[in-house]
Amino acid sequence: MRDKRIRHDEVVAELRDGMTVGIGGWGSRRKPMSLVRAILRSPVKDLTVVAYGGPDVGLLCAAGKVRRLITGFVSLDSIALEPHYRAARERGTVEVSELDEGMLQWGLYAATLRLPFLPTRAGLGSDVMTLNPHLRTVRSPYDDGEELVAVPAIELDVALVHVNRCDPAGNAALLGPDPYFDDLFLGAAARRFISTERVVGTEELLTDAPLASLRIHRGMVDGVVEAPRGAHFTECPPDYGRDEAFQRRYAKAAADPAAWNAFYEQFLAGTDDDYRRALEGGDA
């Protein structure tokens, strides 16, 4: 097995302006935040971001990295609206394709299966269809003749996913209650990177996990980044819950440009090690 361990900046070096980047997790849950912060520090721009959005989307919008967003929502869960995303929408600085949550899954699944589209009823009759004029319907070729939404494949240039445990080759265990759609983000992408709380030996993958937790195998992964607390401040159970105090501080800072600059300098401008040191500094 190949050792695929790389650094945050090596992942970001693969990004080009205008690429489509899918980010795993859901809302403020198990987001690859250390990789997102690494993108913030890079010159890359004009990204199309695909996500069940949380602070990953908010941070990238605030940093002006996002040209277009494909999503079903952007939320911090315990805070209903992501403040940076809300501001970006209300200023009109980001183009958004809002899909039904299930349609987003279907687009990623179609890309995973190399199909041009997958059919569904979800979206029919709603403004998902009028606000996304590129969406088409398809008629069943069978006797029912039913008209359905043809959700187009959402092909990703790069997928970023955070996991609990991973071996050096990319065999990974998701130990929390929900794997979300991370396997589909990886399946839909040309280049696939995972960050992990801890790199373990392959033989250790099942020491504290059932077989069914190994949702990601090395055939789905091109690079592995070791990133303890890599999902902070989003939750990453069972390793840690959401840092609600930090999230409140993030949301509060986002409401005021001066406060946001200070927050950025304190936590986001430096490396991953700087971030952990800033958290340990005690005033987080």
């Binding site: 929502f73 209300e90 200023r91 039904d100 949550e101 349609m103 709603s126 998902v128």
Partner: peptide, 26 residues
């Protein structure tokens, strides 16, 4: 539940589409 005002540049961004289209048709 998505937004108030013009969805191209909303006056107030709300929750987004979430699962509402799929829920109501299914």
């Amino acid at each position: 539940i998505a937004c108030i005002g013009d969805p191209a540049r909303p006056k107030v961004q709300l929750l987004g589409m979430r699962g509402a289209p799929g829920n109501t048709i299914n």
